[in-house]
Write a protein that binds this DNA or RNA. Structure first.
Lengths: 184, 184
DNA sequence: TCAGTTTTCGAACCATGGTTCGAAATCCGA
DNA sequence: TCGGATTTCGAACCATGGTTCGAAAACTGA
């Protein structure tokens, strides 16, 4: 049931935005009464928190899995980019994940940011490793990582599901561009 | 006076976000009474609109100026990236510009999006020209442009003014990476 | 000094929307 | 079938915050 609500909420957050989404809309999307939402979640922010928790968790997991496999930094980076995009564009959950962090109260925000930072570090590690091995050009790994994540996270602003553009196609093009740009 | 208010508002929007910023805060920042804001602006959304109008206008202007000068696509792209970042990180105005479009009512939103699209087309034209001349690798100009703009717009999420990192340094690194990644 | 216009503001208004309340409906093991 | 826990919900509560009102203060030219 909680998962059901989270999915519905993520969907509404995704196309209405967090601020403009009312509890009544979430309830309608989840086919529940408004009051009943409070049986499963403590507050509106709480719902957002678990959306983010879930999707960042999955991205982090994917990054870890790629790290464990025997791959080149370029291959790992492509994998991360692809997974990140699919998570944001295909499944609804990921959309609000990185987008609406400020809406959370201090404590929850702190937790999500900590987890999101772990993810960012994981990506940066791949970039740094690529530079160390000489596969990638020498640049500031932090800035390169942030450029990459910015390009990825911004996709929710313009991507419209159901259009002619498949998430896979975006992933392909972005990987070519963003990984290619690092190569020596 | 209007300019004064806009500057103050842009500053508060920038670090509190549009949704979490109250008219009372804007008034305090502009050193005016809350009611007095309504003598100069019709509504809160109106204030946001003029912030965006102003900064997108300046970006568009810069793009036009670069277009008129005799430069290579790579040089033009570097110029756009640099100007875009300075506008977003140095001056307060630009921060909320691309970030909070959804907060506007239909009519105003439509206008800003139209103008922002013109800017996006200007950037895309540079990319396409680079590809046509063989300076840039053959990729989808639309996706490449959106990757670039995403990386740029996302900077407001992590950049903290007053830190050790100068906007110029970010512009330098981003130009190297994002333009370099397009080169053949 | 004196109208008339511009600018300012304290206080109150009021819609929106997150949240709570109390009770009814449903489920489930005994 | 019975009783308790779980789940559901309509209705109302209430804080937040954008907005308006009416009048006072400041400015301007004569």
């Amino acid at each position: 049931m909680r998962g059901n609500i989270l999915r519905a909420a993520a969907g509404v957050f995704r196309d209405r935005g967090f601020a403009d989404t009312g509890m009544r809309e979430i309830a309608a999307a989840a086919d529940l009464s408004t009051a009943n939402l409070y049986y499963y979640f403590k507050s509106k922010a709480d719902i957002l928190y678990f959306c983010q928790e879930h999707s960042v968790g999955r991205m982090l997991e994917t990054a870890g899995r790629l790290q464990r496999r025997r791959l080149t930094p370029a291959q790992r980076l492509r994998g991360v980019i692809s997974a990140h995009l699919v998570c944001m564009l295909d499944e609804l959950d990921g959309a609000a994940a990185h987008t609406e962090v400020d809406a959370l109260p201090a404590l929850l925000r702190k937790r999500i940011i900590a987890k999101r930072d772990r993810y960012e570090r994981a990506v940066r590690r791949i970039v740094a490793e690529g530079i160390r091995r000489g596969d990638f050009r020498r640049t500031d790994p932090t800035l390169a990582t942030r450029a990459i994540l910015g390009a990825l996270n911004w996709t929710t602003r313009w991507y419209r599901p159901g259009g002619k553009l498949e998430p896979k196609a975006v992933a392909e093009a972005f990987s070519d561009y963003l990984v290619g740009g690092l190569r020596t």
